[in-house]
Computed example of a mutant assay.
Amino acid sequence: MNEADALDIMRAAVWTILVASGPCVIAGMVVGVTIAFIQALTQVQEMTLTFVPKIVAIMITIGIAAPFIGAQISLFTNLVFSRVQSGF
């Protein structure tokens, strides 16, 4: 294993993390911005008002996107195992 192989696996790992966490991050951002906009309009600055909808949205997103996230992790695992099997 040389530096190029290690960098290739690290690049694939970072890309897998970004793609797998993308749906949850986007859902949290959309809900957060929406709640912040509503708070700015109504001037209700309740701290728990931001956390509960975000948690619910992220849990729903995880439930919906679980097959996609699992497929991305499986692809990365297969990549690493195939590289190990071929001896890099």
Score class of each variant (00 low, 15 high):
1 M>R: 04
1 M>A: 11
2 N>D: 15
3 E>R: 08
4 A>H: 13
5 D>M: 14
6 A>H: 03
6 A>M: 14
6 A>T: 12
7 L>R: 06
8 D>S: 11
8 D>R: 05
9 I>S: 05
10 M>P: 00
10 M>S: 07
11 R>E: 00
12 A>P: 01
12 A>D: 04
13 A>P: 01
14 V>N: 00
14 V>R: 01
15 W>C: 00
17 I>A: 08
18 L>I: 07
19 V>A: 11
21 S>G: 12
24 C>H: 04
24 C>Q: 14
25 V>W: 02
25 V>R: 00
27 A>V: 09
27 A>M: 12
27 A>C: 09
27 A>L: 08
28 G>V: 06
29 M>H: 01
30 V>N: 04
30 V>I: 15
31 V>P: 05
32 G>N: 10
37 F>G: 12
38 I>K: 00
38 I>D: 00
38 I>Q: 07
38 I>N: 01
38 I>G: 02
39 Q>R: 06
39 Q>G: 02
40 A>D: 14
43 Q>G: 10
43 Q>R: 15
43 Q>C: 08
43 Q>W: 10
44 V>L: 14
45 Q>R: 08
45 Q>K: 06
47 M>T: 10
48 T>G: 11
48 T>N: 11
50 T>I: 15
50 T>N: 13
50 T>F: 09
51 F>A: 15
51 F>N: 12
52 V>T: 14
53 P>I: 04
53 P>D: 09
54 K>F: 10
54 K>A: 12
56 V>R: 02
57 A>Y: 09
57 A>H: 08
57 A>S: 13
57 A>R: 06
57 A>D: 12
58 I>D: 07
59 M>I: 14
59 M>A: 15
60 I>H: 07
60 I>M: 13
60 I>D: 06
60 I>E: 07
60 I>K: 09
61 T>C: 14
61 T>M: 11
63 G>T: 02
65 A>I: 07
65 A>G: 05
65 A>W: 10
65 A>R: 04
65 A>D: 03
66 A>K: 10
66 A>C: 07
67 P>A: 04
67 P>H: 03
67 P>F: 05
67 P>N: 02
70 G>E: 05
71 A>M: 08
71 A>K: 14
72 Q>S: 09
74 S>Q: 13
74 S>F: 11
75 L>C: 05
76 F>H: 07
76 F>R: 07
79 L>S: 07
82 S>Y: 05
84 V>C: 13
86 S>T: 07
87 G>W: 03
87 G>A: 04
88 F>S: 13
88 F>Q: 12
